[in-house]
């Protein structure tokens, strides 16, 4: 554990809390992509199966349970409790374009051809692109509420901080995982355009509106 890793994890938890609070307080999931949230739930389900087979630390187990429970809660709020507020007309990204390549890639490029490893690899690949339906939705409507922008910024920061963590671990512990690094770089790059808009607009008190 190092400061980048801890900051990354905290940013991740923070992002999820922001999203849950936004939905709960406004009693609405307007502007949020249900497809991205389902993909994230799938990411946690396929990655944290080792919760039952491998014990790393109390911190590790607790965080895994938090991610599983919170993503389940988010999906429940969007598709059951506040279903009427879900803006599915704008949530039109075709998830099979993400799922099929991730399944194929995880079968082809993995550390070990076992069920657990392939599922872990699939979750890493899927996580890197799971935000695309949400970014597509923002670009389609041309705007995002401030709270949604804060959520996206925290969620994007998490993997960027993990990149620093991996650089640190490579030099200090000689530890590296090429699959995670590759996917983490892709994931962070996808947020770059959003980061730029967030810093130049949202932080200056303006709404996140894309140029027409």
């Amino acid at each position: 554990m190092n400061v980048f890793r801890l900051a990354g994890d905290l940013a991740h938890v923070f992002a999820i809390i922001i999203l849950l609070l936004k939905i709960w307080k406004t009693r609405s999931c307007a502007g949020i992509s249900g497809k991205s949230q389902v993909l994230f739930a799938l990411v946690y389900l396929t990655r944290y199966l080792d919760l039952f087979t491998t014990y790393v630390s109390l911190y590790n187990s607790v965080m895994k349970v938090i991610f599983l429970a919170s993503s389940g809660a988010t999906v429940y709020l969007m598709y059951v409790k506040f279903k009427a507020t879900y803006d599915h007309n704008h949530d039109s990204f075709r998830v099979e374009f993400l799922l099929v390549p991730c399944v194929l890639l995880s079968l082809l490029i993995n550390h070990d051809f076992t069920v657990m490893e392939v599922l872990w690899t699939f979750s890493i690949y899927l996580e890197s692109v799971a935000i695309l339906p949400q970014l597509f939705m923002v670009s389609k409507t041309g705007e995002a509420e401030s709270i949604t922008s804060h959520y996206l910024f925290a969620l994007g920061s998490y993997r960027a901080l993990y990149l620093l963590n991996w650089i640190y671990r490579y030099f200090v512990e000689s530890h590296y995982d090429l699959i995670a690094i590759f996917a983490g770089v892709v994931q962070t790059i996808l947020y770059c355009d959003f980061f730029y808009l967030y810093i130049t607009k949202v932080l200056k008190g303006k709404r996140l509106q894309l140029p027409a």
């Binding site: 890793r5 994890d9 991740h12 080792d50 087979t53 491998t54 790393v56 630390s57 590790n60 965080m63 895994k64 991610f67 550390h111 070990d112 657990m116 490893e117 872990w120 993990y162 963590n165 530890h175 995982d177 995670a180």
Partner: peptide, 10 residues
Amino acid sequence: RYTLLQKDEL
């Protein structure tokens, strides 16, 4: 060999 045992990240 890199195995699941070494996956200590989230």
